[in-house]
Write a protein that binds this DNA or RNA. Structure first.
Lengths: 126, 126
DNA sequence: GGAAGAACGCACGTTTTTGTAAGTATAATG
DNA sequence: CATTATACTTACAAAAACGTGCGTTCTTCC
């Protein structure tokens, strides 16, 4: 199979994970998480399992296309879990995985700080 | 002065700062901070005052144009301070402001977690 | 004395991202 | 029986982001 690299090298990469390095896989995860809707999805899901349409309503401004795409990326990264009930008017639930929840907490740290300190920064918004 | 709104309304907005709301100014700050290079710049500056070229070398993959643009946005948001010495081969220093440092710490929380937990997520990278 | 380095601004073209509109199957609602 | 709601997908197109190369203005280092 192509694309596979030695376990040792893999270990090296993971041990030295550095977002400053362009080729480090952590960069991609970071980009997914900090994508325009990534953080908001994570944040919304901290409120518990929710279905697609609920997320859409909760996150102001997302289009269905973007929400679906974002959810797929986060799912591929192992941050959110998707459970589709096999019923005919579709019913799909999204939940944070264990790692997803941990990450989401960090996200709250960031967004929370911003919300709380907006007054100190708004000169730009004025 | 145009563009000014009542102090009460301003207060309301700031008190209710909510990234989930599309029109909330916190959304813009969030977007600047989580922009492709925003977090990396903040991270790099946690290492102390640095000049443009040093930042460029440190952040893998940034182009001069993007670095300049990102720095300007963060400066406008009051997160980084720019000090240009008036000498002829240009010399400019960038430093985090007090709020900038606080925010940067939150950023470290996020990126640090990602770097440390990459092994738990990499299935996507494999 | 030619080359490199400093910190960008600018024009240009490409790449990526994002939004819009439309379509799908079917069950429940009025 | 027409509508509405669900969770998307796909095609198309506009918008935003991005990178590259060039120019600037001097000084320092081969």
């Amino acid at each position: 199979m192509m694309g596979s690299i030695g376990a040792e090298m893999q270990d090296e990469i993971l041990r030295k994970a550095d977002v400053m390095a362009e080729a480090c896989p952590s960069r991609q995860i970071l980009n997914h998480v900090t994508s325009r809707w990534g953080m908001l999805v994570l944040l919304a899901l901290l409120g518990g399992t929710q279905r697609f349409s609920a997320l859409k309503r909760r996150i102001g401004g997302v289009s269905e296309r973007m929400l679906a795409q974002t959810l797929q990326l986060l799912e591929a990264d192992g941050l959110v879990h998707r459970h589709a009930h096999d019923v005919v008017p579709p019913h799909v639930d999204y939940t944070l995985t264990a790692p997803g929840r941990e990450l989401a907490e960090k996200v709250v740290g960031l967004t929370g700080w911003i919300e709380a300190n907006l007054p100190r920064l708004t000169p730009a918004a004025a």
